[in-house]
Amino acid sequence: MPVFLVLLVMMLVEIAVIVAVGQAIGVLVTILLLIAVSVVGVAMLRRQGMRTLAAFGDAVRSRRDPQPEMADGMLVGVAAGLVLFPGFVSDLLALFLLFPPTRAIVRRRLVGRAQRRRPPQVIVVDSEVVHEEQRPPIVIESVREDRD
């Protein structure tokens, strides 16, 4: 699905949800709620981003596989984009990705899917066949310098 289409559908869903919430609780409360959810999202984004960066540094320093921390960093980046996108649905998805237990679920599924899609490793060794009659004889000479 093209990115433009996804953004268009997401924008229409966000507008519909904002209008519905605004009709249910009032325009001023809806605007204050949007601001509050965005502030909470930015605060969580900063906190989880710093934790993920520290965990990545620890993994690299201890020579562990940093794949989980890299996936977490990517998911925190997606959450950052969702927090910047105005609306309740995107903020809810961002908070879902910023909450460590739910992010771990998404990370496991993402890594598992990527591993299933990865082609199997094939090792190719470039070599040449030499027949027995064409091979020159091997001569080993040794000289010891400590004996005269």
Rank of each mutant, 00 (worst) to 15 (best):
E141R: 10
G81P: 01
V83R: 00
I140N: 03
R118P: 01
G22F: 02
D148R: 06
P101V: 15
M10I: 07
R113W: 15
G26Y: 01
E128L: 04
V124Y: 03
A20M: 12
Q67D: 03
R116F: 01
R109A: 14
V29Y: 11
A20T: 06
E132K: 03
R51Q: 15
E14I: 01
L28W: 15
M11V: 14
L84N: 05
E69F: 07
L8I: 09
R113C: 09
P136I: 01
V76K: 04
R113G: 14
L53E: 11
Q121W: 04
V39I: 14
E133N: 11
G112M: 02
P101C: 10
E133Q: 07
V27Q: 14
A94R: 04
L95A: 12
S62C: 05
A16M: 14
R63N: 12
A43T: 15
Q115N: 14
G77P: 06
E145L: 15
V9R: 03
G87K: 07
V3A: 09
L8T: 10
V9T: 10
Q121G: 04
F4R: 05
E145R: 10
S38M: 02
D148T: 12
V37Q: 07
S142M: 09
I123M: 13
F99D: 00
A94G: 05
I123V: 13
P2G: 09
P100C: 14
Q23N: 15
V29S: 14
I15R: 06
A36V: 14
A114Y: 01
F88C: 13
S90C: 01
M50W: 07
M70E: 04
P119L: 01
S38L: 00
I123A: 12
L28Q: 07
P100E: 06
R118V: 03
S62P: 01
I140F: 07
L33Q: 03
P86T: 02
L97V: 02
A71T: 15
I105V: 15
T52W: 14
V6C: 03
Q23D: 10
I138E: 12
S90K: 01
R107P: 08
A80R: 03
G112T: 00
T30S: 08
R116P: 01
G81I: 01
